[in-house]
Every structure is written in C-alpha cells, then in structure tokens.
Design a protein around this nucleic acid. Structure first.
Length: 110
DNA sequence: ATCATGACCATCC
DNA sequence: AGGATGGCCATGA
C-alpha cells in the first residue's frame, strides 16, 4: 500500500512506550499535519490491516478519551490493554492523562 | 474534479 | 456539561 501517510502514523504509534498514551492531534502534529488529526484516527482504523500491528489502544483523543474503543474487538480490549500496561482507565477515559501522555514530538524530532 | 465519510479538534451556544 | 457547527484533509467511489 502506498498509503505512506498511514505508515508514518503507524511508525509513531509503534514508538509509543508502554504505559504511555498520546493523542491523534499530537501524532498529526509530529507528522507535520496538525490539521489531519482525523487522518490519524482513520489510519488507526486501518491499523488492523497494518503489519506489524500497531498499539492503537495507546492512542486516544485530546481529552484522553477512548473514542475508538468501539473499534476494538471486543471494545473493552482497549481498556484491558491499557490497564495491563499500567494505564488506568475510568469511564472510558485515561486517568492522569497528562501524566501518561507521551509526546511524539520529543521522541521523533529528537 | 466532485461527493461522501471519518478512532478529531476547536468553538459556540 | 453536553449538543451542534465548521474546518481540515486523506481515501475511495
């Protein structure tokens, strides 16, 4: 797939350390397309077709809300994975979001 | 090229 | 707080 755009997203998502989460907007920004945050989310939708698979469960919206949890199988899987990595999820949103937030800009543009 | 869609974001009410 | 609106932009038909 020439979907290079998605590949960039996948790369960033794969770089997300365990126990950390990031937002679509942050990823989009790191790719130089801050306004293409939706594309990041769309890329995640294709994450299932990506190889190797990407930890999409570590990607949430700007509020730390698990917006795409319903795209998982089962949806609760996202919460389970996050919880297993030390990321607490309450009411479908990441607890201490700012604390566990991982800034791709600092890691990629390092 | 145009239309419709989307795991978003910011703003307004 | 929660719903509605506009914007932004890549992908597919």
């Amino acid at each position: 797939m020439d979907t290079n755009f998605y590949e960039q997203v996948y790369e960033v998502v794969r770089l997300i350390p365990k126990g950390r989460v990031t937002s679509y907007g942050a990823i989009a920004k790191s790719l130089g397309a801050a306004k293409s945050s939706r594309m990041v989310g769309h890329a995640m939708a294709y994450a299932g077709t990506a190889h190797p698979k990407v930890p999409a469960h570590r990607v949430v919206n700007s509020s730390g809300l698990l917006t795409g949890k319903f795209h998982f199988n089962p949806p609760d899987l996202m919460i389970e994975l996050l919880a297993a990595e030390g990321v607490e999820v309450k009411n479908d949103k990441v607890v201490n979001f700012k604390t566990v937030f991982w800034n791709p800009l600092e890691e990629i543009n390092l």
